[in-house]
Amino acid sequence: MKLITATPWGVYSVWWRHFQVYRSTWLVNCLPPVSEPVVYLLAFGYGLSPLIGEVDYLGQMIPYARFLAPGMIAIGVLFQSFFEGAYSSFIRLNFQKTWQALLTAPLSYTDVFLGDWVWAATKGSIAGTITGLVAVLANLYDLSSLVLSLPLIVLGSLLFGAFGLLVAGAVNKVDQVNVPIFLVIIPMFTLCGTYFPRDTLPPLLAKFAAFLPLASLVDLLRWPLGLPPWWPLLLLWLIGWMVMMARLAALRIYPRLFS
C-alpha cells in the first residue's frame, strides 16, 4: 500500500459528513450513551452495592458504585467506538458504498480512512463523556477528574474505533461482526475490571484479562481512586494497541477499494 498524503481538510470533510448524519438524528444518537450508564449504575450501583458494600482496590476499600463508575465510562467508550467502526463503517464500505463515492472526490484513501476512524473515536468520546457526566451527577466521579480523564477517553476511543475498522475490513458479511463481539468484546467488557477487581479472578484468567486493552483503560480511568505503580506502561500499552489496530485496519480495508 502506498502511503498517500492526507490533508487536514480531507480528514475533516469526511468526519463532517458523518457528523451531519449523526446531527440529523442527534436525539436518537444521544439516547444510548445516556440511558445505558444510567441503567447500569441503577442496576449494579443500587442493586449490588447493598450486597457488596465496598471493594478492595489497590489496598483500599472503595464504595462499589464509585468503583463501578470508571468501568461504565470505559464501556461507553468501547461500545460506541467499536460499533461505529465495525458496523457503520462496514455498511458505508459494502452497502452504501460511501467510501467509494468519497474516493471520486479529491480525497485520498488516508483522508477517508482517518475521517472514518476519527469519527468512530468521536462517537466513543461522546459516549464516554456523557457517561462520565452521569457519574458526576450521581456523585461517583469528580468533574475535575472527568476533565483530566478526557485524553484517556479519546485514546480509548481511537483504539476501539480502530479495532472496529479492522473488523469492518476483515469480515465479508455483516453477521460475521458478531464473531469478534463474542470472542473479544464480551470477554473484555466483563472480565477487564469493569464490574469487579481483576484480582478476584483465577491468576491465569486475571493475566488474560490484563492483557486485553480495556483493562489498561479501566485502570487508568480509575486514577482518582489510585494508580498501579507501572501506570505509564499501561498508557504505552494502549498506544501500542491503537497503532497496531489502526495499521492493520488500514491494510485490510485498502484492497477492498483499490485493485
Partner: peptide, 21 residues
C-alpha cells in the same frame, strides 16, 4: 489521483448516492 480528481467529475457504474441525505 487526489490532486487530479479536483478537476475531474466521476460517474461510476454503481449507485453510491448517500441514502442518509
Amino acid at each position: 489521483g487526489q490532486l487530479a480528481r479536483a478537476q475531474m467529475g466521476i460517474v461510476t457504474q454503481e449507485d453510491n448516492l448517500d441514502p442518509d441525505f
